[in-house]
Structures are given as structure tokens and as C-alpha cells.
């Protein structure tokens, strides 16, 4: 029995037999067939093989293979629940991500002031740049002390160095407070202003009555460095500093009135329950995903 000269010729001849070649390839094969009798012979044998296979007797199906309702029980009900669980799992994951975003992204979580205060200096500096000269002039030539980081006067007055982030709402973090050295160490003593229930230092108070304004504010000011007492009076070297909060400097810059937030009950709720919410969402996501997988396997 003849064989083509090249192994690929079998594939070409087979495709030629079934009309699976392009017209150009068909012409090329025809030319070869005319000049190569062996190739023509191989094509004939392939054609003969195909004819034998096509003549294979067909068998009748021994029975009907139709399906009865008993063979496919409750298929639709199971299948309809699967996407529900899949969607619920995906939704739980999305909510989990959102909750993490509230925890991590600045500005979204009121309880994450330490992180939120990180990018603030540049903005606060702008505010201060506009307000500082004015405040400087009206404070009797004393250099102001500027604090960033939400020293809005709420919370228990704990030291930010010692307190965990967000433990005292509105507490200024250590990294968020910058102090400028005072020129007069005998000036009005600085007192922590972080946890005052009263309104914090405002632009108007800074401008009009520097001494009166700084006194209640300084009373609660937390030292940025060192180990000063929580509610005590600042060390001598830090007395006489004027502290300006971030919000007050921003308000100075933009001229907006400062709004002192009410004692944050909602924030406290979020701060206390965010972890539990995240754990719950994680459990829901895993549970729904497992349910969807199990249903899909059952179906």
C-alpha cells in the first residue's frame, strides 16, 4: 500500500477529501496529485476508508432516553437558590471592604483621626500661612503654637502618647501636634486643649483676646513630647505656648465658622462596633459562599 512522501500529506489529503482546504490549497493539492501517482493512490485509499466508515451499520436505540420528573427532582429550586447565595456572599465581601475603607482611609472614619491627620499638615500650613501673621500680631508678639489633628475639645483629656488611636474621640495625636518654641517662657502656661467640652480655640478668640483664649485651651493641651501629666500643667519649658487647632486654622483660612461637634454618640458606636461588624461580614461572606458551592455541587 502506498504512502505519501511526508507525514503531513495525510492531513492535507484528509482535509482535501473533506473540502476543508482553501481554494488555493486545493489547487496546489490537485497539481501535486496529477504529478504524483503515489499521492493519488493514498488519496484513493483514504477515500475508500471513509466510504467503509460511512457504510457502518447504524444501530437503533434500544429504548427511549427521555427523562422523567423523578429523574430530575427539584432541579429548579436548588438552582434558583445558588445565585442568591452567591450574590449574598459577594455583597458581604463588598460591605467588608467598605468597612475596612472606613477604618483605613482618611476622612471616612471619625474614629481614625491619627491616620486622618497625616496629610493634614500641608493643608493646615496653608491655613496657618494666612492666619499666622494676623494671629501673631494680635497675640502680643508671642509665637503661636499650632496643633493639627482634631483637637476639638472632646474626650477625656488623656495623653495621646499614651492613649490608643481613637480611644478619646477628638484627641490630638502626638504626631499631629506641632509646637513652635516660644520666645517667652514666662508667658501664659499651656494647658491641654484636647478634651475640653467647651468649644476649641477659634479664629475670633485668637484674634481678639489671645490671653483669654489661650488659657482654657492651653489648660488641656497635651505636650507633644515628653511625659507630661494627663490633666496637669505643662512643663515649664512648654508653658506660654499658644496652640491653634487644625480646624481653627482651616477656618481661619477659609473663613468658615467652626462647628463644634456634639459628643459623638454615633462615632462611639462605630468605633466600638466596627470590628464586630467586620467579623460578622466576613463570617457571612464565607458562609454564603460555602452554601453556594454546596448547592452547585448538589445540583
Amino acid at each position: 500500500m502506498t504512502t505519501p512522501h511526508f507525514p503531513d500529506d495525510w492531513e492535507i489529503l484528509s482535509a482535501y477529501l473533506d473540502g476543508q482546504l482553501s481554494s488555493r490549497e486545493m489547487d496546489k493539492v490537485r497539481q501535486r496529485l496529477e504529478s504524483q501517482p503515489d499521492l493519488q493512490r493514498a488519496l484513493d485509499e483514504l477515500q475508500q476508508t471513509r466510504a467503509v466508515l460511512r457504510a457502518a451499520p447504524r444501530r437503533r436505540a434500544p429504548r427511549n432516553f427521555t427523562l422523567s420528573p423523578a429523574m430530575v427532582p427539584q432541579r429548579r429550586r436548588w438552582l434558583s437558590l445558588t445565585p442568591v447565595f452567591s450574590f449574598a456572599s459577594a455583597l458581604a465581601v463588598v460591605l467588608l471592604v467598605v468597612s475596612f475603607a472606613f477604618t483605613l482611609l482618611p476622612g471616612l472614619n471619625p474614629t481614625s483621626q491619627p491616620l486622618a491627620a497625616a496629610p493634614a499638615p500641608s493643608q493646615a500650613t496653608k491655613g496657618f500661612a494666612a492666619a499666622a501673621p494676623q494671629a501673631n500680631d494680635q497675640s502680643g508678639g508671642q509665637p503661636p503654637i499650632i496643633a493639627w489633628g482634631g483637637a476639638t475639645g472632646m474626650g477625656g483629656g488623656s495623653s495621646p502618647d499614651q492613649a490608643p488611636p481613637g480611644a478619646g474621640i477628638g484627641s490630638a495625636p502626638a504626631t499631629g501636634v506641632e509646637t513652635l518654641p516660644t520666645q517667652d517662657p514666662n508667658a501664659t502656661p499651656a494647658v491641654p486643649s484636647l478634651t475640653l467640652p467647651e468649644p476649641p480655640v477659634t479664629s475670633s478668640t485668637v484674634q481678639e483676646t489671645p490671653a483669654a483664649t489661650t488659657e482654657p485651651a492651653l489648660r488641656n493641651t497635651v505636650p507633644s513630647q515628653g511625659t507630661g501629666p494627663i490633666l496637669g500643667i505643662r512643663p515649664t519649658q512648654e508653658q506660654g505656648k499658644i496652640e491653634v487647632t487644625q480646624e481653627s486654622t482651616q477656618n481661619l483660612a477659609y473663613g468658615a465658622p467652626e462647628v463644634t461637634p456634639a459628643p459623638g454618640e454615633g462615632q462611639t458606636f462605630l468605633g466600638r462596633n466596627l470590628g464586630a461588624i467586620q467579623i460578622g461580614l466576613g463570617l457571612l461572606a464565607v458562609g454564603f459562599a460555602l452554601a453556594a458551592i454546596l448547592l452547585r455541587r448538589k445540583s
Partner: peptide
């Protein structure tokens, strides 16, 4: 298809 036909031919 080509390889199967070739083997079947043999």
C-alpha cells in the same frame, strides 16, 4: 481525523 483515518486504513 487525518491520523485516525490513516490508522484505520492500515
Amino acid at each position: 481525523v487525518a491520523r485516525a483515518r490513516s490508522k484505520l486504513r492500515e
